[in-house]
Simulated assay, not measured.
Amino acid sequence: MSEENPVVGRRALIGGGLASAVGVGLGVAACSPSSPQPEASPASSTTGGSPPTPAASSPDAPGTSGPGASPTTTGASSASATDAVPALLRTPGPDVRRGPTSVRAVALTFHGAGDPALTRRALQILADHGAHVTVFAVGTWLSGHPELGRAIVAAGHDLGNHTWSHQTLPRLSAAAARTEIEKGARAVAAIDGSSPYLFRPSGTPSSTPTIRTAARASGYARCISYDVDPSDYQDPGAAAVAARTLAGVQPGSIVSLHLGHPGTIDALPTILRGLASRSLQAVAMTRLVA
């Protein structure tokens, strides 16, 4: 990964000019393809492994001056400039698949897309249980519903980038991948209080060298993966989503869920009660890896 540190401050805006939003995606495809994607790297832990050497900057890549270019800090408040950012998220390395096993906490992470009513319902359930999560928002969805992004952040949840339009990222050219990540980053950065450190690739559970280089160009030192996938995007029903999630979680787990699926939202109270029964707290990513 790039040896430059990303910008300090969780409300920092991503630099570079890009076209405005051109559509609103109301659905999200599975991010765990059934067959391995070409060039996909092996699943890696939160530590170890040397990042690949950054590729040369593409002259037509929008809004960057080369891999690892730091976003600007336009509009960040003095308080946000001193926000504590986990060192792991500022340190180049392999995909983050889980947090430390020494903590009695897990990160429920949601791919942000779909019916806004489902997101509002999820936020209410989380508030009722005193739980916090991370939403990796699809840029078209977030640009179409900025009030949801503001509500997510206001409730104390993490808001990160899940690309602009949820393409199958490993199939894209380097330039197209950079555009998808950069435009997604700008959509997230438009929400005050969002995180410029949290990025999850779309269409794949693991990053590739091309994806990592593109992510560095938008200031993301690491990509966020997961170790628990209940395949809720296949709509197996609330009982199955809850059972699969609770069967897989361990201290430090990162769970992949989707806001746009009713069964997932129906399963959420059962998941939260199950975690509590094991003395596991649902926390945001930035807290899990702090």
Rank of each mutant, 00 (worst) to 15 (best):
M1E: 14
E4R: 15
V8S: 12
R10N: 10
L13T: 02
V22L: 04
V28Y: 04
A30R: 02
S41I: 10
S41H: 02
S44R: 04
S44M: 08
S45P: 09
P52K: 09
P52E: 14
S57N: 15
S58T: 05
P59K: 13
D60W: 08
A61F: 08
T64P: 07
G66K: 13
A69T: 14
S70C: 15
S70H: 06
P71F: 03
G75P: 12
G75H: 14
T82M: 15
L88Q: 01
L89H: 04
T91F: 11
G99A: 10
G99E: 09
V106T: 05
A107H: 10
F110I: 07
G112S: 00
G112F: 03
G112W: 01
P116C: 03
P116R: 08
Q124I: 07
I125M: 06
L126E: 03
G130I: 06
G130T: 08
V135R: 01
F136W: 03
A137V: 00
T140F: 01
S143N: 14
G144L: 01
G144K: 00
E147F: 06
E147C: 05
R150F: 11
I152T: 08
V153F: 13
L159Q: 12
L159E: 07
L159A: 12
G160Y: 04
H162G: 10
T163N: 04
S165E: 09
L169W: 07
L172Q: 06
A177Q: 11
A177M: 00
T179A: 12
E180H: 10
I181L: 07
A189Y: 03
D192E: 15
S195P: 04
S195G: 07
S195R: 05
Y197G: 04
F199W: 04
R200N: 10
G203Y: 13
G203N: 12
T204E: 00
S207F: 05
A214L: 11
A215I: 04
V228G: 04
Y233G: 02
D235N: 14
S253A: 12
S256P: 13
L259C: 06
P262E: 13
T264G: 06
A267F: 08
L268V: 02
T270F: 12
L272S: 02
G274L: 08
S277I: 11
S277N: 11
T286K: 05
R287E: 13
